[in-house]
């Protein structure tokens, strides 16, 4: 029995089923990316997907594109070289919360500041899954991790505000439950000229859920459904109804000079001066 036409077209089906745990939503986010790519009609041969290290970064092994599984935290830096050296390529980076905002945090803020035409998808499951459940920069305050057995003492990053503050010109947050808007954000991010970041709130039933008594995968998906509110709706909600709610939606959409175009402009200007 074959899988769906979409999966057959864009996945390396020989490598499936994937290594992710039952109920892990990384598979949902990865499929949503493929739907976005399909709807945009990107050429597989001209699309490069780069990842770092961690559960989310294993996605590239399953995707039938030009793929690079790099070192921990450095995917954006590798991707910067790919894009600048060959601007005709669409370059998409898949990263996790630890990969993108802890070990790779410096590259995140600088890629955003540079406004280079890359799309960063952070699959945020609020935990280090691959290594067995240590707290990450997005694990909520007081939640449990194997390295925070008495609760996380730190405050978490808000990745949307981080990317916005660093200068990203397209910023959105979706969830693995709200798939249709998620696909829309992925499409808008890929089409956006400049640095785009979409945070996808994912669930990790095995390493986050068990420690924090979050319930089954189904219960965690219900939590995404019930606690995430579209930003435009949230803005209209009375204060008392906002308790315990989180927002998703598009937060930044602006045009600023894009790095690669600016650089190519310099090459062309110099060429013009030479010819003159």
């Amino acid at each position: 029995m074959r899988s769906s036409q979409l999966v057959e077209k864009y996945f390396r089906t020989k490598n499936l089923p994937h290594i992710w745990c039952p109920g892990c939503s990384l598979g949902i986010a990865t499929r949503s990316l493929v739907v976005a790519i399909d709807e945009l009609g990107l050429d597989k041969n001209k699309t490069v997907i780069v990842s770092g290290i961690g559960c989310s970064s294993r996605a590239v092994g399953y995707l039938d594109f030009n793929t690079i599984h790099t070192t921990h935290g450095r995917a954006l830096a590798f991707a910067t070289g790919v894009k600048l050296a060959n601007p005709e390529l669409h370059v998409i980076v898949i990263s996790g919360d630890g990969d993108a905002s802890a070990i790779g945090g410096n590259h995140l803020i600088h890629a955003a500041r540079r406004n280079i035409d890359l799309t960063l998808l952070i699959f945020n499951n609020n935990i280090y899954g691959m290594t067995g459940g240590q707290f990450s920069p997005t694990t909520p305050h007081a939640a449990l991790g194997t390295t925070a057995p008495f609760g996380v003492v730190e405050q978490p990053f808000d990745l949307v505000k981080l990317a916005e503050g660093a200068g990203a010109t397209y910023v959105a947050r979706g969830t693995a439950f709200h798939v249709n808007p998620l696909v829309k954000y992925y499409k808008n991010a890929i089409e956006h000229k400049g640095f785009s970041m979409v945070e996808t709130i994912c669930i990790c039933p095995t390493y986050y859920g068990r420690q924090n008594k979050s319930g089954t995968a189904v219960q965690m998906m219900h939590w995404l459904k019930d606690s995430f509110v579209l930003n435009t709706a949230y803005d209209k909600m009375p204060e008392e109804k906002r308790q315990g709610k989180h927002v998703y939606g598009e937060f930044v959409k602006k045009d600023l000079p894009e790095y690669v175009e600016e650089y190519v402009g310099i090459i062309e200007r110099l060429k013009g001066e030479e010819d003159a």
Binding site: V48, V50, I68, T70, T71, R74, L76, A77, F78, A79, T80, G81, V82, K83, L84, A85, N86, L89, N106, H107, H110
Partner: peptide, 14 residues
């Protein structure tokens, strides 16, 4: 670190 990473990425792109 990103200095070498970008160079590797560029080399991969040919």
């Amino acid at each position: 670190i990103s200095g070498i990473a970008a160079a590797i990425g560029a080399s991969i792109s040919g």
